[in-house]
């Protein structure tokens, strides 16, 4: 239902009382995010995960390639909290190192996607007209292509390496970013406050930095947060197929792949890496959703 006119107008008396203390949209958004318990828990979890990943070389109980063939695969125990794999390597250690790789791919490839997407989207949105049409048509076309397949093709031709992984995944994920940024820029460009800024005689640079970017930032932050899990997913997908990270290095995907081979005898080798991936994806998605709710101007209006 269209809300019938119920929104109360703030009375002028009310706004006069609080002396000179305005609350910015950023501040309001932060307050809303703080109230979202699930998103805050996700944030705490993710910060912890990143810290652990950074400190892994010092924190990890074992080395990731240290084998104990005599021990072989063993169930979780006091020495090996999450058990060991078929080569007797400590699973917790391998998951910790895998987290490093997966998160690194997630952040770097997202940064690549962010860079290309923002550049492409702002250019198209700002120039508009014919340039915009051609640029966005190209995005439409690329959108329809089977990128996972191209990434496989790339790894076949160039061999798999982390660098290729960053570039390939980044090159796939920038499309949506470009669309969102372009939509934002285009929408904002038509806004009257941008026209007012032009009327005042502001330079293009000031308009972009003072008026355009602060207002386009919200959706970009939200979408960046939501891109990280899909990047991690794509990396895990490739590593699962054996086309991503190569042994003895590990990532969540390759650990799961190893776990599948022996899940009948040693199910923990599948369950723990799978759980880590799922929980990390959960947290990233919840945080993304929470940020969207907090930053969405439609929510902040009432």
């Amino acid at each position: 239902m269209a809300q019938p006119e119920t929104a109360p107008e703030r009375s002028p008396e009310l706004s006069g009382q609080a002396l000179e203390s305005g609350s910015s949209l950023w501040h309001d958004a932060f307050v809303r995010l703080r109230r979202n318990r699930l998103a805050m828990m996700s944030l705490v979890f993710l910060v912890a995960l990143v810290l652990v990943a950074l400190a892994t070389p010092w924190l990890a109980p074992y080395s990731y390639e240290e084998q104990d063939l005599a021990l072989g695969a063993s169930a979780p125990s006091a020495e090996h909290w999450l058990g060991t794999d078929t080569l007797g390597r400590d699973l917790l250690t391998r998951i910790m190192y895998g987290t490093r790789v997966s998160l690194m791919v997630g952040f770097i490839a997202t940064a690549v996607a962010l860079g290309i997407g923002v550049l492409w989207g702002t250019t198209a949105g700002f120039l508009g007209g014919r340039v915009d049409m051609v640029m966005m048509r190209l995005v439409d076309v690329l959108y329809a292509l089977p990128f996972a397949i191209f990434v496989v093709l790339l790894t076949v031709i160039f061999g798999s390496s982390l660098l290729l992984l960053f570039l390939a995944i980044g090159a796939v994920e920038w499309l949506t970013m470009a669309r969102i940024v372009r939509g934002q820029v285009l929408g904002l460009r038509r806004q009257e406050f941008i026209e007012a800024a032009i009327s005042l005689g502001l330079s293009r640079w000031s308009i972009i930095t003072r008026h355009l970017i602060p207002n386009a930032l919200g959706p970009i932050i939200v979408y960046t947060t939501l891109t990280i899990p899909s990047v991690i997913l794509l990396e895990s997908f490739l590593s699962f197929l054996g086309l991503g990270v190569q042994a003895p290095q590990s990532s969540w995907g390759s650990l799961i792949s190893d776990g599948v081979d022996t899940m009948e005898e040693y199910p923990w080798l599948l369950i723990f890496p799978g759980l880590t991936l799922a929980v990390a994806l959960f947290a990233l998605n919840f945080l993304g959703d929470g940020l969207r709710d907090a930053l969405d101007p439609r929510v902040s209006k009432d």
Partner: peptide, 21 residues
Amino acid sequence: MVGICLPSFVLGPMLVLVFGI
């Protein structure tokens, strides 16, 4: 949300483990 966070290469083996094995 669970469905989105459990990719096919995690869900598939888990299903096999539970319903198959």
